[in-house]
Amino acid sequence: MHSIQDRLPVSIIIANYNYAQFVSRAIDSALEQSYGNVEVIVVDDASTDHSAEVIASCGPRIKPCMKKANGGHGAAFNTGFEASRGAIVLFLDVDDYLYPNAVSEIVARWDDETAQMQFRLHIVDQCEHVSDVFPPPEVPFDSGDVTPQLLRRARYQTTVTSGLAFARSALERIMPVPEQEFRQGGDGYLVTLAPLYGKVKSIDTCLGAYRMHGNNHSTFSEKLGQRARWRVEHDFHRLQALAHQAGDIGLEVPPDANLRDPTHIEERLASLCVDSQRHPVAEDSRLSLAAAGAAASMEMNVSLRRRAMLAAWFLSVGLLPRRMAQAVLSWKLVASSRPAFLTRISKTIRYVTG
């Protein structure tokens, strides 16, 4: 292991904006790694709270990058990567944290063909109580050469920022992140392009914690339409970046690849159904999206029962009266909106169809 440590320096880049209450936990988790050759870089994206004081208190154990103007997620990634030296690079969201064995487990499985490694995370609340696993254990990661899936539907089964590690050699081919298009969701850009330059490896154990709280971008459940529009537009930016990058290496991405992706279609259907006036694709109809979603569901890498249930869900949203369709959408996309009996049923279905 010592020879591997000498050969593979690792960088953990923590991007912070106004999360002074979480930044110490994230930094400590990076500094407490059992692996020896780790540098910790903290990018503060012009916070207006007391983040600067918390970061300064860490002294020389970390490399601070204090930005004077707020640039967003992608810009923070760019700043941190430019300051880093690691052969393996992790981007840790400041409200999440890693377990002490995370980097050791990653390095132990790393090889020269790896462009990206992904691992599961415990879902925790603000008090760090574990409530679940993300992605759910019954949803298998996609591993190996995922380029065919990217070229077909512009997505594969991966995870969020804090559950990822990248080869520097791959990042050098795709960075900097376009900062305007990826002010939020910079990880979406990285996971879409990095696999063009190597294999994706997966670890099914939890190596860190994904904190859910009221201020997460990913949890503004009371604004379902806004969330759906953002995700649809984010997918369009990812598709555009993928098409450009793939073209550079002689590959072609079909312009309608998103319409083979159940996750994209789900959000696009939500956007149209909840707030059709602000939906970004004028030619969409509920029925056409539902049919595309049902077809795409049957190609997913999950059990047949789960595929069939998702296909039926898409068709129900496409065919039901709008008010009923909105309720069905909300029950799936926003757990807190479900009636109690549906919550019980969904938990049973989750394990039966896993």
Rank of each mutant, 00 (worst) to 15 (best):
Y17F: 15
G36W: 07
D45Y: 00
T159E: 08
D125L: 03
R7L: 15
V160Y: 12
Q245T: 13
R268I: 06
E128N: 13
H237A: 12
L8Q: 14
L310A: 11
D125E: 02
Y189T: 09
R231D: 07
A83Y: 09
E32N: 15
M117P: 06
S221C: 13
R344T: 01
H244C: 11
R25F: 12
N18G: 13
R85F: 13
G74H: 03
G86K: 02
D93W: 00
E82H: 14
A115M: 03
N78K: 03
V139Q: 13
G71N: 05
L171T: 06
V40G: 03
S330Y: 03
M324D: 14
M66T: 02
R168I: 05
T263N: 07
E266H: 08
G225H: 03
I123K: 06
T263V: 10
V328C: 12
V334W: 03
S221L: 10
R152N: 07
Q277V: 11
D284F: 04
E179Q: 13
S316I: 12
H217E: 14
P262F: 00
A295D: 12
T48E: 13
A76M: 08
R85W: 11
R286T: 07
L224C: 06
Q116H: 05
R231T: 08
D6M: 14
S29P: 02
Q5G: 14
N101A: 12
V43N: 00
L98R: 03
S11I: 13
V133W: 00
C273A: 12
A167D: 09
A69R: 13
N258S: 09
V177G: 03
W331R: 10
R7A: 15
E179S: 14
P254A: 06
F81M: 04
K347P: 02
H2K: 14
E128L: 12
H237P: 03
A325I: 04
W110S: 04
L8F: 15
V94L: 06
K201Y: 12
Y99C: 10
S29M: 05
L150D: 05
D284Y: 07
G186S: 10
E172P: 07
L164P: 02
A115T: 04
G250C: 00
S346E: 10
V133T: 07
Y19P: 10
P339L: 07
V89T: 08
A26W: 04
L242S: 01
R350T: 05
A292E: 04
L259I: 02
E113R: 15
E181Y: 13
L224T: 06
V200H: 08
V107S: 02
G354R: 06
R120C: 02
S271N: 00
F81R: 04
V146Q: 01
R307L: 06
L121Y: 05
G59M: 04
K68M: 10
G225L: 03
L289V: 05
V317K: 09
A194C: 14
R238V: 02
D235S: 14
L333P: 03
L239K: 01
D28P: 09
V160I: 11
D248W: 08
T192H: 09
Q240D: 15
T205H: 14
I123C: 08
Y189M: 10
F182H: 06
Q126C: 07
R183Q: 15
I88K: 02
G208P: 02
D111F: 00
A15K: 14
S202V: 14
S276T: 05
R350V: 01
S297A: 11
R286M: 09
K63F: 11
R109L: 05
S346Q: 11
I41Y: 08
A296W: 01
D93K: 00
